[in-house]
């Protein structure tokens, strides 16, 4: 098979980028999309040119590294997979394919197709954890968790943090990512003590990092390689609302003794 590729090339964060055309020939249908790009890069290298920079690691759809917008769709035309799980037999021989990086204000381009997604890490650092010390945990079976609840929590927890949801959203919102994280822990009894603080802190961090707001278009769910449901965005909204109520209740409680003393 052969393909014409239009690939976004950009030397660095502050340089202008542009599309460059490459021909990919001798492609076999069993090659993965990234292997096809590897082959293009091997040829560029031998010709003394700089290869196209793109991100990858596990090549089996779990690490969340690979991140290409293929013909306008993050992770390409198929649902429920990552770029590295896409195979060339999926494309008609001779097709032209456009390849771009994730585009979002919160994800500045580093080089070519590589972007900086550390904003997602900072959102996690703001509260995406249960603060328990190592050691001294009670037996794992002390708190029973119903199978359905555990499975729903696992549905949310399967987010691989690739950022496709952000790349697909017109507002570059990270709602699905945050929703997945918040829901995963909110559904478990272990997440309960910090439930209120967690959601507020993560939403605040999300805004601070420059992610947009949710426009309820659900493009995120459509491109999510783990098919994480937008139902979790509803959960997130509920959690946020609940946090607001709990927080105001708590602050008025703590204010009252002070008020008395005045």
């Amino acid at each position: 098979m052969r393909f014409t590729l239009n690939i976004w090339r950009q030397k660095g964060p502050n340089e202008a980028g542009r599309f460059v055309r490459y021909e990919a020939s001798d492609v076999s249908p069993g090659m993965s999309f990234l292997e096809m790009l590897d082959a293009v890069n091997q040829k560029l290298l031998v010709a003394g040119e700089e290869p196209v920079a793109f991100e990858q690691d596990c090549r089996e759809g779990i690490c969340g590294s690979c991140s290409l917008v293929i013909d306008g769709i993050p992770h390409g035309p198929d649902r429920g997979i990552t770029t590295c799980q896409l195979y060339m037999r999926r494309f008609p021989d001779g097709a032209s394919i456009t390849i771009e990086p994730w585009r979002a204000r919160a994800f500045p381009i580093i080089k070519d197709l590589v972007v900086d997604r550390s904003a997602l890490d900072r959102v996690m650092q703001a509260g995406g954890y249960i603060s328990v010390n190592t050691g001294g945990a009670v037996d794992g079976n002390v708190l029973l968790i119903g199978k359905d609840r555990a499975e729903t929590s696992m549905d949310a927890a399967s987010c691989i943090g690739c950022g496709a949801c952000v790349a697909a959203c017109k507002n570059a919102s990270a709602m699905l990512f945050v929703a997945a994280k918040v829901s995963h822990l909110a559904l478990l009894p272990q997440g309960e003590p910090e439930r209120t603080r967690r959601v507020s802190a993560m939403i605040e961090a999300m805004d601070r990092e420059g992610f947009g707001s949710c426009g309820n278009q659900y493009e995120c769910e459509a491109v999510c390689p783990k098919s994480i449901s937008v139902r979790f965005i509803a959960t997130l909204n509920r959690e946020y609302l609940r946090a607001g109520i709990v927080e105001s209740a708590l602050s008025s409680e703590s204010e009252s003794p002070h008020a008395e003393s005045v």
């Binding site: 249960i130 945990a137 927890a157 995963h184 997440g191």
Partner: peptide, 17 residues
């Protein structure tokens, strides 16, 4: 035990174990 405390959603039986 540590992993459960950290919120790892291990597979469970219907009874919750």
């Amino acid at each position: 035990d540590q992993c459960v405390a950290l919120g790892i959603p291990f597979a469970r039986e219907y009874g919750g174990q």
